[in-house]
Amino acid sequence: MNQRTVVALSGGVGGAKLALGLTRILPPDDLLVVANTGDDFEHLGLTICPDTDTLTYVLAGLDNTEQGWGRRDETWSFMDTIGTLGGADWFRLGDRDLALHVERTRRLRAGESLSQVTHDITRRLGIGPRILPMSDDPVRTRVRCDEGWIDFQEYFVHRQCRPVVRELAFEGAGVARPQPEVMAALAPGRARAVVICPSNPFISIEPILAVPGLRAAIAASGAPVVAVSPIVGGRAVKGPTAKMMEELGLAVSAASAAGRYGDLLDGYIVDEADGAGISVATRAAPTLMKTVEDKEALARTVLDFADSLA
């Protein structure tokens, strides 16, 4: 295990942008990306891992940059046919993307762990850094709305975030075991930094921290913990972050997002307009990552800040 590992906690789109920036400035063996699996679900008989797959496609250079999710140069014959047959076509699986889900599901049913499957697929796609799930045990995010509890993808994709969020729960988290390589990277003295990517705190990062032992391991690692705010200019860059904050009675601000991590943080990267009311050390930087150069520049800022806090 490398003695200078940067451990990055990540959800999907926003987290993958910073993860890509980190891959451009770190040797492959010096970066471990911990993927949220709370979004995972079973669909059409297949195990779908949205955040892991977004990270995989982005780091492999296969992502659809215009759409923000899925693979580029995608075709949709399978979904068009499923719809014609009356099947569930609300969660769009492109033909190229489908191959990954079929192969993952086959190997999981054959007895391989999610970590083993993910590691092999990322290597076959030419990704150097490790991408590992937070746990090989199933953890599923659930959303309580006015009608009761529903699965996260039902809320997020099928209903397009329309229901009012009253509460979140991470089913299975209480008995899930943290991924062993992740825990080894977080052993005292082993990590250079822990980076919390600019992902939704509620549905991307908190499921990771809900796995028993992970939050404590981060706190005991001795590495500086630096988060990047998902809020820019008082607004969420993408997804339902701001809507969730409002519905859960929180101010839509970088400070509120930081507050979700409690005393875990040593430092917080915020956009130039968002530094008020934060109790930990902050550094202002452009956090809106539109180009590869933006991603690399923010990654350099994050690591420089973390090193200054070590």
Rank of each mutant, 00 (worst) to 15 (best):
M1V: 03
N2W: 08
N2V: 06
Q3W: 09
T5P: 14
T5E: 06
L9Q: 00
V13R: 14
G14L: 05
L18A: 07
A19L: 06
A19G: 10
L22I: 03
T23W: 09
I25G: 03
P27D: 07
V33R: 03
N36Y: 03
H43F: 15
C49R: 09
P50D: 08
L55Q: 02
L55I: 00
V58H: 13
L59P: 14
D63I: 15
T65C: 10
T65I: 11
T65Q: 15
E66G: 13
E66Q: 15
F78H: 12
M79G: 04
G83R: 05
L85K: 15
A88C: 10
D95F: 12
H101P: 11
V102I: 14
R109F: 07
G111C: 05
P129I: 04
P129F: 10
L132V: 03
M134Y: 02
V139P: 11
R142Y: 08
D146S: 12
R159W: 08
P178T: 04
E181D: 15
V195Q: 10
P198E: 05
S199N: 05
S204I: 00
I205E: 03
P207C: 06
P207G: 01
P207S: 03
L209G: 00
L209S: 00
A210W: 07
G222R: 09
P224K: 11
A227Y: 12
P240T: 01
K243I: 04
M244R: 02
M245S: 05
L250H: 15
A255G: 02
A258Y: 10
R260A: 10
L264K: 12
I269A: 01
V270N: 05
E272I: 11
S279L: 14
A281V: 09
T282I: 05
T287S: 11
T287N: 07
E293N: 14
D294I: 03
E296C: 08
V302H: 02
F305G: 02
D307S: 14
